[in-house]
C-alpha cells in the first residue's frame, strides 16, 4: 500500500447550462479519501452531491478539475467504482439473486462463481430464503440490502452510496447502517456516503465534509472523534451531541443564507 489517497477529488467544477445561462452546481471541490476510509458528504438539498457522485463514477464530465482513483483519472470511465442510489433499482423481472449478481455478470464472472459468492453474502446479511423471490415480494429494507450486496459484488474497492437509506424507517435504517459498517470492515472498502442525516454521518464515518448550498463548495471538513467499532450508545455521548449541534448549525446557516439570497 502506498501512502497515496484512494480517491482524490481535485478542484472539480461543474455548471449546467440552460436557456437563461448557466447554473453552477459545484465549485472547486477538493478532498481526499484514504484507502479504507469512510467519508460522508453532508449538505443541504441541492448542493450538487449527486452531480459530484456522477462525476466520480465517471458518468459525467466536470467542466474543470479531475478525479483520481489510485492516482489515475476516472473522468469518462464508468464502471470503476460501486454506486448505490436511494432507490434500490432492482430489476423487477429478475430474482433477488440474479439482481445481486448483475454487476458480476457484466464483468463476465461465470454464473456459478457469482452465485456461490452471492449466496454466502445473502446468508450473512439476512436474505437467505429469498434468493429466488422477485423484488416486489420483499420489504423496502430487504430490497435495499439486496442493492447493497449487488454493489458489493461489483468487487470495486470504492463504493459511492447516494442516500442509500433515505427512504427507510428509523429501525430498518439502523439495521442497514450496522450491516454497512460490517461490510465496510470485513471487505475493507473505501466508502463515500452522501446523506442529509447528521446522525447517520457521525455514526458511520471517519470524516465528514459539509457542503454549501448551490454552488456546492466544501464548507468544512471534520474528523469524527469516535473509536471503532461504533455502538449505538455512542450516539448519546456528549462528544456526539456537541458534534451534532455544530453540524446542524452549519447546515441551518447554509439553508438560511440560501433563503436570503433567494428572497
Amino acid at each position: 500500500m502506498s501512502g497515496l489517497s484512494k480517491v482524490e477529488v481535485q478542484g472539480v467544477t461543474k455548471a449546467f447550462g440552460d436557456v437563461e445561462g448557466t447554473v453552477p452546481a459545484l465549485e472547486r471541490i477538493s478532498f481526499q479519501v484514504p484507502a479504507g476510509g469512510f467519508t460522508s458528504l453532508l449538505g443541504p438539498s441541492g448542493c450538487g452531491k449527486s452531480t459530484l457522485f456522477n462525476i466520480i463514477a465517471g458518468l459525467m464530465r466536470p467542466d474543470r478539475g479531475d478525479v483520481l482513483l489510485d492516482g489515475r483519472s476516472v473522468i469518462g470511465k464508468p464502471g470503476q467504482v460501486g454506486y448505490m442510489l436511494q432507490k434500490d433499482l432492482l430489476l423487477p423481472w429478475r430474482s433477488i439473486q440474479d439482481n445481486i449478481i448483475l454487476g458480476a455478470r457484466l464483468r463476465h464472472v461465470p454464473v456459478k462463481d457469482a452465485l456461490t459468492q452471492a449466496r454466502a453474502l445473502m446468508e450473512r446479511y439476512g436474505l437467505k430464503g429469498f434468493e429466488k423471490r422477485k423484488p416486489h415480494e420483499l420489504s423496502g429494507g430487504m430490497r435495499q440490502r439486496a442493492a447493497l450486496l449487488r454493489t458489493l459484488l461489483t468487487e470495486r474497492e470504492v463504493l459511492l452510496l447516494d442516500e442509500p437509506f433515505g427512504a427507510l424507517d428509523a429501525l430498518t435504517r439502523l439495521q442497514l447502517q450496522l450491516g454497512l459498517t460490517d461490510v465496510w470492515q470485513t471487505f475493507r472498502k473505501t466508502i463515500l456516503l452522501v446523506t442529509h442525516d447528521v446522525e447517520e454521518a457521525i455514526f458511520l464515518s471517519d470524516e465528514i465534509l459539509v457542503l454549501s448550498r448551490r454552488p456546492g463548495r466544501v464548507r468544512r471538513q471534520l474528523t469524527v472523534p469516535l473509536p471503532r467499532p461504533r455502538t449505538v450508545d455512542m450516539l448519546a455521548s456528549p462528544e456526539v451531541m456537541g458534534l451534532k449541534k455544530e453540524l446542524l448549525e452549519l447546515l441551518l446557516k447554509e439553508e438560511g443564507s440560501a433563503n436570503e439570497s433567494n428572497g
Partner: peptide, 9 residues
C-alpha cells in the same frame, strides 16, 4: 436504472 447499469460498467 440506466445510470445504475452504466455505473456497473
Amino acid at each position: 436504472l440506466e445510470t445504475l447499469m452504466f455505473s456497473l460498467g
